[in-house]
Amino acid sequence: MKKFKWIASVLLLMFGAMQLYRPAKNQGNPQDMTTDISHVYTMPDSVHTLLQQACYDCHSNHTRYPWYTDIQPAGWWLASHVREGKEELNFQEYGNYQTKRQRNKLKRIKEQIITGAMPLSSYTFMHREAIWTPAQRQAVIAFIDSTLEKL
């Protein structure tokens, strides 16, 4: 029993120490839309809203953080997801991409939607609004197709 208390104390101390190191939050200005994809291409408001609900938390400069990200290691895990997501695609910096990269990103987004690879199931588990109906998926795909035709 004494050994159990010692191990539990050490684990509790380690967990407490983990709480002292918090990753920086992705809290850029959500209103800074000058290079946002919605300013690069004309898109229906409904499509932009869908992208914001399902994609922008990981693929923009501003993340809406749920309560559990203040508890480590969940915060570290989410920070890693956001960092990787922004490296792959940042909707708020889309206008800074070269035209070829913009075209390739649109093709990749369409592919991810069709295959169901995005949004991640770990994200939709906690964010039910990010689960699109077939009609919503088709609306985003139609926007992508019409945009690619113009490029």
Rank of each mutant, 00 (worst) to 15 (best):
K2S: 10
F4V: 13
F4H: 04
S9F: 13
L11C: 13
L12I: 12
L12T: 10
L12G: 15
L13F: 15
F15N: 00
A17T: 08
A17G: 09
A17K: 03
M18W: 14
Q19E: 04
L20C: 07
R22S: 08
A24R: 09
K25C: 01
K25R: 15
N26S: 12
N26R: 08
N26K: 07
N26Q: 11
G28D: 03
N29L: 07
N29D: 15
P30L: 05
M33T: 15
T35Y: 15
D36W: 08
S38Y: 06
S38D: 12
V40M: 05
T42N: 13
T42G: 14
T42K: 15
P44L: 10
P44M: 08
V47F: 11
V47C: 08
H48Q: 11
H48I: 06
T49G: 08
L50A: 07
L50E: 02
L51E: 03
L51Y: 09
Q52D: 12
Q53C: 01
Y56A: 05
H59T: 03
H59I: 01
H59W: 10
H59E: 04
N61M: 11
N61G: 15
H62C: 06
P66N: 05
W67G: 03
Y68E: 06
G75N: 05
W76G: 06
W76H: 11
W77H: 10
W77K: 10
A79R: 12
A79T: 06
E84P: 00
G85E: 07
K86V: 13
K86A: 07
E88Q: 13
L89S: 03
F91C: 01
E93W: 11
Y94Q: 05
G95N: 09
G95A: 09
G95L: 09
Y97E: 09
Y97D: 07
T99D: 11
K100T: 13
K100C: 00
K100E: 14
R101F: 02
Q102S: 06
R103I: 11
N104S: 09
K105V: 09
L106N: 04
K110G: 04
E111C: 00
Q112N: 10
I114L: 11
T115P: 00
G116P: 00
M118F: 10
P119L: 02
S121W: 02
S121H: 06
S122R: 08
Y123S: 00
T124W: 08
F125S: 03
H127T: 03
A130E: 00
I131R: 12
P134E: 01
A135T: 09
Q136T: 04
Q136K: 07
Q138I: 03
I141T: 05
F143R: 04
T147W: 09
K150T: 12
K150C: 01
